[in-house]
Amino acid sequence: MKTNDLILQTATKLILFLIVLFSIYIFFAGHYTPGGGFVGGLLTSGAILLLLLAFDLKMVQNILPFNYLYMVALGLLFAIGTGAGALLFNTPFLTHAFGDIHLPVLGELHLHTATLFDLGVYLVVVGVTMTIIQTIGGDE
């Protein structure tokens, strides 16, 4: 039986971008305010999951041709690399650094290495969630 999912598909095309944008906002809300890599990653995987529900596995794999296992590994490299960067400055592992930088267009920026760590977390969360969903979903 062919189900009619026109409403779902049309709505998804719009909502998908809203969720992804919101997840990026949440990601940059970062370590002082509620947000960060974990929640951001979950939201992004939620968006991809919605895409999966509205369309099918094959199409999503065409749009996003990532190897999610490599994405997990890349995220781990980011996270460990941020921690291990402290070794170069002979400070304890995981010590973070931050500073204010003035950029011509963007103005005053408060930059923190925790963002790099969070980027790692983000990639790991998206990678792991999508690996799990694809493995279960791809199973006939």
Partner: peptide, 8 residues
């Protein structure tokens, strides 16, 4: 680090 590199 080795464990992560080995995934690649």
């Amino acid at each position: 680090i080795t464990g992560v590199l080995l995934i690649f």
